[in-house]
Nucleic acid binder design. Structure first.
Length: 426
RNA sequence: GGAGAGGUGGCUGAGUGGUCGAAAGCGCUCCCCUGCUAAGGGAGUAAGGGUGUUAUAGCCCUUCGAGGGUUCGAAUCCCUCCCUCUCCGCCA
């Protein structure tokens, strides 16, 4: 959510900023609503003031033992007027609120201009895509040949966009998660968390998935309204919803492994083969809460922590900064980390690291106490995958495959796999 | 699932229709006194929003789990929901 005061004071600047990312904003409609809001709110509050004063004097008259019936009659008419004014005000405020909740974040000035993912800008590369003297197979073929990755049986028990892993592949998937958590906790100083995988509507509104992107979520049926989390960002960031955090405790750096559930509505026909795009996948998520003046430095740090996982795994990757047209709804700046996928002969997203500025914090009313002012002020929230486990698994499978179909286990994972150095071909 | 109790400010906790944004205590900040790792005295100390200002100030509205209702007036009465605690049952 953007600062309503900014919308009032400099609406044309906001419209120009939103236009950078291709978002439309009806300035005239907004201005008209805002003008009505102001008149109605001032009027309503004046009436409330009058009502309060009258009621108070009635109370005092009662204490003096006077007849208050005439006074009551006089206030009754005021009450009707107040009620009508309140109803109208609520309507206008709800209309404004709907607009506020639908507006994306303003982008950082450093975000490159562009329309789509084709305009994203590469920042750096690490590692070299391996040269092989054989044609690399993709993870689907590799997994099928090993008998350890099965999409057909997953379709039987659940449907499309699910996977079943077995044996050493299932174990490597688990090993990756363990390795990532341990690295972030032991090497990078994160606090490990375990959180609910179902959350309420308030949480999803806080981080910006709702109200605009409800079709991307799985909702549970039942008496209570629950949604399956699309990312640990939702529960973890919302832990501090409504809190005022002391400056000494910032930055907060939290790591959390969860499954993620996404309906993938609107991605029909995209990445239908294999494990790239699933309804259910595992991810290790990094969440930072930071002082506003440190959040862009925190974004670099967070991205570096995610990169370090790929470096330790020996996987070649590149970091790109998303352009204005490709940056997500709540982010002011996003780096994607893309890992080399031999079968596709290109880099594919394995992590997305974003600074959301005060966008989520305003929705959640998450603040810190600024020692300079002594006042609560909105803090900044960041999140990034560190990294997606399913995609890390297939990256390892494809990058570490041998000509005979076996898969060498990266050094750092061996301690999590009983010391094995290879998944043998069958 | 059954029975009961309860949700008040950073914390503890009073408040059952009016002068209550809310006693008291703790904590915290500042000042005084006193000196030395004790104590005493005084003052201050919620958040959100509106208006307004270069920015302050000021003024106003709202908020006692959430949402509705009754009333001139609700922390206080009524309804619905959420949550916490205790006991029983069940269970990983």
């Amino acid at each position: 959510m953007l600062d309503p005061k900014l919308l009032r004071s400099d609406i044309h600047k906001v419209a120009a900023e939103l236009a950078r990312r291709g978002a439309k904003f009806d300035v005239e409609n907004y201005t008209a609503l805002e003008t009505r809001r102001k008149a109605l709110q001032v009027r309503t509050e004046d009436l409330q003031k009058e009502r309060n004063a009258s009621s108070k004097s009635i109370g005092q008259a009662v204490h003096r033992g006077e007849d208050v019936e005439p006074l009551k009659a006089a206030v009754a008419a005021l009450g009707e007027e107040l009620k009508a004014s309140q109803v109208e005000l609520t309507q206008v405020q709800e209309a404004l609120e709907a607009i506020h909740m639908g507006l994306p974040n303003i982008l950082h000035e450093s975000v490159p201009q562009g329309q789509s993912e084709d305009d994203n800008v590469e920042i750096r590369r690490w590692g070299e895509p391996q040269q092989r003297d054989f044609e690399p197979r993709d993870h689907v073929d590799l997994g099928a040949a090993l008998g350890l990755l099965d999409f057909e049986v997953a379709a039987k028990i659940a449907g499309s966009r699910f996977a079943v892993m077995k044996g050493q592949v299932a174990r490597m998937h688990r090993a990756l998660i363990q390795f990532m958590l341990d690295t972030h906790v032991e090497e990078h100083g994160y606090t490990e968390l375990y959180v609910p995988y179902m959350v309420n509507r308030e949480s999803l509104t806080g981080t910006g998935q709702l109200p605009k992107f409800e079709e991307d979520l799985f909702a549970l049926s039942g008496e209570q309204e629950y949604f399956l989390i699309p990312t640990a960002e939702v529960p973890v960031t919302n832990l501090s919803r409504g809190d005022i955090i002391e400056a000494d405790n910032l930055p907060l750096r939290m790591v959390c492994h969860t499954p993620c559930f996404r309906s993938e509505a609107g991605s029909y026909g995209k990445d239908t083969r294999g494990m790239i795009r699933q309804h259910q996948f595992e991810k290790v998520e990094l969440v930072h809460l930071s002082r506003p003046d440190e959040s862009y430095a925190e974004l670099e740090t967070l991205t570096g922590h995610a990169e370090s996982i790929l470096q330790r795994l020996g996987l070649a990757y590149r970091v790109i900064v998303l352009c204005t047209g490709d940056t997500g709804f709540g982010a002011s700046k996003t780096y994607d980390i893309e890992v080399w996928m031999p079968s596709q002969n290109k880099y594919r997203e394995i992590s997305s690291c974003s600074n959301c500025g005060d966008f989520q914090a305003r929705r959640m009313q998450t603040r810190w106490r600024n020692p300079e002012t002594g006042k609560p002020e909105l803090l900044h929230t960041l999140n990034g995958s560190g990294v997606a486990a399913g995609r890390a698994l297939i990256a390892v499978m494809e990058n570490y495959q041998q000509a005979d179909g076996s898969i060498v286990i990266p050094e750092v994972l061996r301690r999590y796999m009983g010391g094995a150095d290879r998944i043998p071909a069958t």
